[in-house]
Design a protein around this nucleic acid. Sequence first.
DNA 1: AACCCTCCCAACCGCACGTTA
DNA 2: GTAACGTGCGGTTGGGAGGGT
Length: 281
Amino acid sequence: MVRAPCCDKVGLKKGPWTTEEDQILMSYIQKYGHENWRALPKQAGLLRCGKSCRLRWINYLRPDIKRGNFSTEEEETIMKLHEMLGNKWSAIAAKLPGRTDNEIKNVWHTHLKKRLKRNQANPEKILPTPTNHSNALSKSPSSSLNFPPHDQETSETDPSYTSLSPQTSSSDFSSFTDASLTTMEPNNQYIDHIEVEDMSENFPVIDDSLWSESPLPENTSVPSDLFAISDHESQTSQYLFNSVEIEEPGYDHFGSIIDDGMEFWYNLFIGAGGSPESSEF
DNA sequence: AACCCTCCCAACCGCACGTTA
DNA sequence: GTAACGTGCGGTTGGGAGGGT
């Protein structure tokens, strides 16, 4: 199939946006929203293609854009997430409110990549501390979800359980898994994805009971903290989640565990179904 | 002052994927 | 089932700013 161009480029303006164009675009979107980017420039009276308008809005004009230099915390978050996710700029941007994927991509290419190379050359100076990890990711609203404390009794009484510890030390990740299952149904909660970062040569075995094909009903039990269960006979480890009642959907839950001297990172997203909120001005 | 070089970042491009008719 | 369309994403580019010679 031949892809049609996003717009008739004849006569359309390219290059930097003027303040007048910005004004036109902003006032149009504030008045009418941006349901159809392709039609928007024509309706707004802009000699731009819809794609250009969308980019301008998302990367520059949106009211929630954070301007200015990146803080150390933000940079560390980017480096950490890049380590976990690779060049998934939009996913990284989702963890940094007010920052765009384009901005993050630029910062990565201009500053952080070089820093990473320097760091790799001098590894003793750069290991991100566990405290930094937690600080960097502390924007995750998991704390507002009233997670019950870790089931100390179970982990303490059952020697096969290794309790989770976010106090990690190493950052040399070598592989990464990302399993995904997503369903969008109104008023339901669902497990979006679970990512487990694995330093070892062998991927952890995720308990099958974790996965769900259908949306979870309200107040259902969903996985929370991660446990490692070592099977010394087969010399494998299985990773299980401690179930909790979810009161509020829609959060990312980061964590890490150390098992047998190896560090595993995971990212659990539990979201709410339903149609996305429409923005009104 | 003029030129050159490097860095930075806004914007563009092409592709992939989801949705619609 | 399929073509057309709309949107989002990641890679790349080009021009301006700033520093060095």
